[in-house]
Amino acid sequence: MGEPYPIQEMDQEDNDGSMQLVGFVIDNELFGVDILMVQEIIREMPFTPIPNSPDFIEGVINLRGNIIPVIDLRRRLNTTSAGTPVENIWIIILNINNRVAGFIVDSVTKVLRVATENIKPPPDIVVSGLQSQYITGVCRIDERLLILLDFNRILLVDEIKKLRGLNDDTLINSQDDPN
């Protein structure tokens, strides 16, 4: 597993005051997700694209007989560098309220332990090009800013539908030529 950042281990600190995060990196930006949501982390595997799906849905994968959608976080969050893929990507499989989905990330850190009190609410301004609505909080780890993402929001059905609607329209409008 990639380990580009040294981790501040808070040895055996009481569970109450801290949470464990899995950190991951997209475009040199450090993100985190609650470890309890992480089902597994896999290497890249072949996607089957879904026609007419929103562009951030990379496709579906066959994970031991289960078909799981894979979402390109770069595109979903409209980060500044949307659409610049990295080789050797990882897929974090998350269980978000019993909906399992995979998210493409550049690399994954070790488990991080963060004191909950150190997690601050998201700043109103846009952090590294992503809208603050998708951020639950930020915290400092080793002079770096870790962004906690709100995956519930990211996977919000209504929002996805809306995006699909837009997508659908543009798609239809662009299709002037029959056949």
């Binding site: 089957t48 879904i50 026609p51 007419n52 799906s53 849905i57 579906v60 066959n62 007989g65 289960n66 078909i67 799981i68 959608p69 909906r99 989905a101 996977l155 059905v157 996805i160 539908k161 699909r164």
Partner: peptide, 18 residues
């Protein structure tokens, strides 16, 4: 096999198979 709801709905697919 079912697809995730947000993919399946109104997509023209009723599911997937392996």
């Amino acid at each position: 096999k079912p697809l995730a709801d947000y993919i399946q709905e109104k997509s023209g697919f009723s599911g997937a198979t392996i």
